[in-house]
């Protein structure tokens, strides 16, 4: 469990590009479940009510970043690091999330090679899977 204040201590992302509100489950270095609320005045809702699909990818990547950063902080609290989105594989979009919905973001580390980490990732609204696939992050100490 991690509130937004703690997320901001571990991730460098800020408005308008912090796309996870809360972490509801966290196993550092393994997996996490995050939450993104979609509400009325967000910048990406202009003339429509859909959460843009590429931002689902970004939200999931940020939760993946938390999984890796939490592990690095656990091992060495003053550690500084840089995580970047490295890739996406076989990612399928089933439907859009819309204003008023809470998006659950699930990621689980499946593979790591040097400083590249691959996650199985899925986005759900309530129990319905709206998108899923694999994402890859690069993550290294600075």
């Amino acid at each position: 469990m991690m509130e937004n204040k703690e997320i901001q201590e571990i991730l460098p992302h800020r408005y308008p590009f912090l796309l996870v509100d809360r972490i509801t489950h966290l196993e550092p270095g393994k997996k996490a479940i995050g939450l993104k609320n979609l509400t009325g005045d967000e910048w990406f809702f202009q003339g429509h009510h859909f959460f843009p699909p590429v931002l689902i990818l970004e939200s999931l990547a940020q939760v993946g970043g938390i999984v890796l950063a939490a592990k690095a902080k656990e091992e060495n609290p003053p550690a500084r690091f840089m995580g970047l989105f490295a890739g996406v594989t076989d990612f399928q979009f089933y439907r859009s999330a819309v204003l008023g919905e809470q998006v659950t973001l699930k990621v689980e580390l499946t593979q790591s090679l040097a400083n590249v980490y691959r996650f199985a990732a899925e986005a759900l609204v309530q129990e319905e899977k709206i998108a899923s696939g694999q994402i890859t992050l690069s993550f290294s100490p600075t």
């Binding site: 970047l84 890739g87 594989t89 076989d90 990612f91 399928q92 979009f93």
Partner: peptide, 11 residues
């Protein structure tokens, strides 16, 4: 048009 699938991306 809607995005259906991202088969592969490398940044």
């Amino acid at each position: 048009c809607s995005l259906q699938k991202v088969g592969r991306v490398r940044f």
